Computed example of a mutant assay.
Amino acid sequence: MVQQITKGIKISVIPRFEGTLINKQRECHAFSYTITIENQSKVPVQLLSRHWIIKDSLKPIEIVEGDGVIGVRPLLPPGEKHAYSSGCLLQSPFGSMEGHYIFRNPNTYEKFKIPIPLFKLHAAFALN
């Protein structure tokens, strides 16, 4: 597990290798990750958007941006958590992901960036 706290927002990530499959006639390695966002600050926050940097050792860096996470823009009062799972396909059995979320304080409308810590993606069969 990888964890980081920034401005009272704790981001925890658990990555997993799910297996190898054929996608568009190419071998791909499927990875999932579960992210828990915990508001440890004293004010409510709302997640507005995400920005991902996906590194695959066999491909150029991929940037993915979007609204919310898995179709929602969770509002987190102090002490609340939101967890979700998602995934990606890599050509290589090795890669990594990192990025950031944009949050807003719904009381003041102030927006701020919270980093998503770098986490490694690796298939166990490829490790020595």
Rank of each mutant, 00 (worst) to 15 (best):
I22G: 12
I61A: 11
Q46S: 07
P115H: 05
K55D: 00
F103G: 00
N128S: 15
S85W: 14
P93N: 05
R104Y: 09
L58M: 04
K42T: 07
V13W: 09
P115G: 11
G87E: 12
A124P: 15
V64P: 08
L75T: 12
M1C: 12
R73M: 04
Y33E: 03
T20M: 08
K7I: 00
E38T: 10
L127P: 07
P74S: 09
H82D: 07
R104K: 12
I61P: 12
P15Q: 08
R26E: 12
S92E: 02
Q4K: 11
F112R: 02
P117G: 05
K10D: 11
F31S: 00
I102H: 11
F31Q: 03
W52Q: 04
I14Q: 14
M1A: 09
S85Y: 13
F17P: 04
P44S: 06
H122Q: 14
K59I: 02
S92I: 00
P44I: 01
M97K: 02
H122G: 10
P15T: 02
P78R: 08
N107P: 15
N105S: 02
I102S: 14
A83D: 11
Q3W: 10
S32V: 09
E80R: 00
G8D: 06
F94I: 01
T36Y: 05
G19Y: 07
P106K: 03
Y109P: 12
T6D: 15
P60C: 01
D56I: 00
P77D: 14
G71V: 06
K120W: 03
K81C: 07
F103M: 05
G79D: 09
P106C: 02
I11H: 05
I63Y: 14
R73G: 05
I37W: 05
I35Y: 00
Q40F: 10
V72R: 09
R73Y: 09
Q3H: 03
L47C: 14
Y109V: 03
G71I: 02
R73N: 15
A123S: 00
Q25Y: 11
M1I: 10
N107E: 15
E18G: 13
P77T: 04
K111Q: 14
P44A: 10
R73V: 04
L121F: 05
P78S: 13
I63M: 06
I53Y: 09
L47T: 04
K120E: 15
A30L: 03
P78D: 07
N105L: 03
I14N: 15
Q40A: 03
G87I: 02
R104D: 10
R73K: 06
I5E: 12
S57E: 12
H51N: 14
